[in-house]
Design a protein around this nucleic acid. Sequence first.
DNA 1: CGACGTCTAGATAGATCGCTCTACTGATAG
DNA 2: CTATCAGTAGAGCGATCTATCTAGACGTCG
Lengths: 200, 200
Amino acid sequence: MPTPDQPGTTRERILDATAALFMRYGYTGTGLKQIVADANAPFGSVYHHFPGGKQALGVEVIHRSGAMYGELVMSVFDAAPDIVTGVRDCFAGAAEVLRTTDYADACPIETVALEVASSNEQLRLATADVFERWIIEAVTRFRAAGIEADCARELAVFVIFLLEGAFVHCRATRTTEALEVAGKRAAFVIESELRERPAR
Amino acid sequence: MPTPDQPGTTRERILDATAALFMRYGYTGTGLKQIVADANAPFGSVYHHFPGGKQALGVEVIHRSGAMYGELVMSVFDAAPDIVTGVRDCFAGAAEVLRTTDYADACPIETVALEVASSNEQLRLATADVFERWIIEAVTRFRAAGIEADCARELAVFVIFLLEGAFVHCRATRTTEALEVAGKRAAFVIESELRERPAR
DNA sequence: CGACGTCTAGATAGATCGCTCTACTGATAG
DNA sequence: CTATCAGTAGAGCGATCTATCTAGACGTCG
């Protein structure tokens, strides 16, 4: 489905189209021809704006998508009355998005991360960087909610990759079972942690 | 790294080589040329043994790898004195394998599952089938350990996709942090469940 | 022995890949 | 006005992809 004449500069349209395609089809599964078709951009513009070619475009898309998805998740946390509700809302929201996008829109970098982990060091480092930023953001939230530093990092890693794992099952089965289970368990674990070790 | 003249029939060598390549590079990232090179097989043999081409080969590899990985995990459970230790050993074993294979050998079908979820219905169904079989096997184990039916399925989904999520982080960062955190949390959750709702 | 089916072996086709190249457009500066 | 430069536009290159095709090797039957 080609994206109809979006607003924004050619460069931005290329970035947006690439991000959408990476989320669904991954890095090797997305061709430059398809990117420019979806972005309504001429082929030559890709190499004008991204002299490093597909890899350079990939690195920028990974960082950009990672930042945008991080902000999206954080906005859900901001809207929630407490951290446990925030976690629950994140999983529920992710399930809702999956249902309304024909199980296509999950994590914007997960497919790419697995694809490039053993084949492209530059892209692998980009995905690792995004994951680390997400963890740090989550740690900040958890600490602010009164969880001790060491434990906060453990919980951040636990919650984020429980979400990533659930995405795999949901996309493969076209159900949201895994996200529902994961959300319930994640919320319960954080609740327990807060109960057992109350505020500092 | 081309696999040196393995034993087995040409067909089996093709299946083994494809499975290894899918695990590292995914479906679209693996070419038939590379498969026959690694398998020490002539190109034509692929289409002789798999008349359906790359997709038919993919479907069979997914089912085969899924069954083999399931058996591997179950053998770890069999060797453990109890179910909590079994879960802990699975995550620890997965971390050990990752470390000794340069973070390449994780889940044999995870990368493919994400890649094909929105692009190839036949392969998507194959990955969904494998996940469902794994869940059923895990449910059987958990029920045998005295966990109630509904809860057993929840725990199975939770543990399996916590493992899958951890694989993403480990392969991207080339650390085993996520698997260690996940193993610890998974074991704790199952332990709690057994403590709170003792044998039937 | 020859006929037949299975499997090996690889050349080749046709499409698509990432990428490079030149030409063109339009806005701005001198 | 001309000169300049960023960006648009797409034809075309070599490489690689999946898939097909023909030919040969090998064993097993009649």
